[in-house]
Design a protein around this nucleic acid. Structure first.
Lengths: 229, 229
DNA sequence: CTGTGTGAAAGGTTTCACAGCT
DNA sequence: AGCTGTGAAACCTTTCACACAG
């Protein structure tokens, strides 16, 4: 009864790699961070066991994932830190410019842009929009804050495909539709509403209230973990 | 080679319900939101098909989940909106007070507390901590901002078990250890670092950079979704 | 007849065990 | 020997199909 909203695998047939499960895609950034730390430490080669220790995943899982990307390891040795990083970035499409639109320059939007500014990485926030006239024209984390009416022109002009929705719940659906109309097809939504959009648009929701509610389940109403009184 | 960091099921044997898969736990808040909307609309009974339309999940999945909680539906009729909501809240432990500590009153922390303030719901942010002396003593979303040195006493005094870490990466590990020492065993971590904590502590990480990196995978470098020029 | 609850089947992911390079 | 890559097994989740209650 449901159209199976992007479940399982993706990228049917492409140049480099074909169809990686969503769960594996979510782990790639984890590897990337671990590799970054190792590179800073000057390490050139890393084993799956070492990556496991750094990421909290199992070595088998890591080998499976990396083998899926095309097998960039050397048997009996391990993975070349630098090279593996490049391969993963390439697989994620982070070797090109990936501009992102941020809609909503409130506290959350500000936190996101500050955070993004500090990292020398893709994706990078390339355009910011807010409905508050007092904010329009100001700069935030290196990007200019524009009015909501400029979404369409700006997103098109910059060829933006990804957007972050950081506006209050009431405005989110309208914002999302504008972004999609302008060419965005991958959205990260922080507003606590279910967005109703064409099936080809990928929406990832991050809802703090839900996150907390789910976590409450794991708080058992008995003795705390470490008490010493 | 790994101790299986809380995988699969939980809550071994308890009073009300026993062992719900993590994936199901994550869906409960989704049901809760849909039920809230329906309740506002004055609806008393809802079918799994209707809930499916509101949540984007399948009706079978919803029935499976709700049957696991104890089967609160009436065959041939559906689920009582009010009653089902109570059952889910009870299962999540939201029928009691669930105070949460928030560490870090920067932009992110402010966004979180504002957001939490507006909702008449559990969990509720019951204590806020920040290292900035200028902020200590001020109020934010109904709670007082305290100094970091007050974490232990306050968390213990209020019996807080859950905490949100919204501090920069460098301080996160220290903050996490303090929280755990004070009795917290469920953490929501927004800092972009892997926290090294005892296995019995449940950590849920939300990392914007990783989220964006993973989403970049789904931005295929070809024609956008909706173009009309 | 309607819509839930549930065993069975299907599908996907993780773990295991080991073959195969270096 | 050491560590990757990979088929097979185990495990978990979702979907299907239908019995069953109201």
């Amino acid at each position: 009864m449901r159209a199976k909203l992007h479940g399982g695998r993706h990228r049917p047939a492409d140049g480099s790699s074909r169809a990686l499960p969503d769960v594996a895609v979510k782990r790639l950034p984890v590897y990337l961070r671990a590799l970054g730390e190792l590179a800073v430490g000057g390490q050139e080669i890393v084993s799956s066991a070492e990556l496991a220790a750094h990421t909290g995943l199992t070595s088998e899982q890591i080998r499976k994932d990396l083998a899926m990307l095309g097998g960039f390891g050397t048997r009996g040795v391990g993975y070349h830190v630098e090279r593996l990083g490049s391969s993963i970035r390439s697989c994620l499409g982070l070797d090109r410019e990936v501009p992102v639109a941020l809609v909503g320059a409130g506290h959350l939007g500000t936190a996101l842009s500050r955070y993004n500014e500090s990292r020398r990485q893709q994706p990078r926030i390339g355009a910011i929009f807010d409905s508050d006239p007092a904010k329009v024209g100001q700069r935030l984390g290196g990007a200019l804050i524009r009015g909501m009416d400029e979404i369409d022109a700006t997103v098109r002009a910059l060829g933006i495909r990804m957007a972050i929705i950081a506006v209050p719940a009431v405005g989110a659906q309208v914002v999302a539709m504008r972004l999609v109309a302008a060419g965005c097809d991958v959205l990260l939504n922080f507003a606590p509403v279910r967005l109703d959009l064409p099936a080809e648009v990928r929406v990832h929701n991050v809802d703090l209230a839900m996150e907390l509610e789910a976590l409450a389940y794991y708080v058992r109403p008995d003795a705390p973990g470490a008490e010493g009184e």
